[in-house]
Design a protein around this nucleic acid. Sequence first.
DNA 1: TGAGTAGGTTCGTTCAACAGACCTTCGTTC
DNA 2: GAACGAAGGTCTGTTGAACGAACCTACTCA
Lengths: 184, 184
Amino acid sequence: MALGMDYAQQDCSLARALEVVGERWSMLIVRDAFYGVRRFNDFLAHLNIPRAVLTGRLRSLVAAGVLDKEPYQQSPVRYGYNLTSAGRELWLPIYALARWGERHASEGGARTVFSHATCGTRLDIVGSCPTCGVLVAPQDVMMRPGPGAVSEMRQDPVSRALGRPHRLLEPIEQLIEPTTEPVG
Amino acid sequence: MALGMDYAQQDCSLARALEVVGERWSMLIVRDAFYGVRRFNDFLAHLNIPRAVLTGRLRSLVAAGVLDKEPYQQSPVRYGYNLTSAGRELWLPIYALARWGERHASEGGARTVFSHATCGTRLDIVGSCPTCGVLVAPQDVMMRPGPGAVSEMRQDPVSRALGRPHRLLEPIEQLIEPTTEPVG
DNA sequence: TGAGTAGGTTCGTTCAACAGACCTTCGTTC
DNA sequence: GAACGAAGGTCTGTTGAACGAACCTACTCA
């Protein structure tokens, strides 16, 4: 971790987890991966993160087994980053932290609402479906903008794609509309 | 946040939460507060954090409404830091992240085991009691060293006190044994 | 031939983390 | 009443990561 010093002296699983996802930007990168972002330039556009930092974070998340780097096309070869099964298990802590932030560090209500894709019920505080009584896996979670969303905030194609209702882990490439410049 | 740049452009509750507890050390300070640490010097001894950084983090956690700074004695006045109600709600994300770290970033099993104080059952993955079927509030959670604990790791009085089975939020002062130096 | 796209690397600047010394106030002990 | 210790800090110089901007390398398409 940062500055040549780590949490190694902490005999604690939380400290171990924070060595993987506790650095600046890491958790937001994982969140974007849940939202369907897979490409370097899409992370870059959505996060406003320095390129070199993104390179480093993606590398360490791959090394930690949270993300998987795979070519999604040949000639020229282009890579995408997907959550591994360990990475997908980060859904619970990320959801819990987002809900905390919604209640205690935001105004204007939830920016994003998560619901059970099967029945449409909004997830409860721990990420279960109150209607079906099950803990909902991320691929069965539907996300859509909530009442607190600020639609004018970002207008890049990635942000617009993420603002459409869709399932977690569903790649956003298919949601990005072709840039239809107004003629003139 | 760090380096004059923050997550303000992220229209996301997770980013808001990370502005409060996402900086280096912040989440470990909150964890220690759950474990019963309340005094400046006890945080210092247990975390091995630079004093100036601890001062700053405690200040911002108080400003964010996560901790409360209160004198616990007069003459000389001494302060303790306690979790507010908003701070206590961080239990869910912290527990979820610790469980993730236990499964994916540790070896040797759980370092700390959390159970329902009422019935003794170990908490499930989201922090509920499988026996009683309720989400367990932190003050009803019992913590004790687990099979993966490394007892030789730290031997300061604070670490020893935290190694004793006790309820979350129970101040550790009463668990710290008087320093009984061997005579000679 | 030139422009564009994807996924980076390199470099100089800034600013927080770090380690350790120092400070203040009060109580206790010799 | 001088010395010492505890608690809760502040101050200072050094280091190293984050930042921003420019540059690089394939490759494709018009």
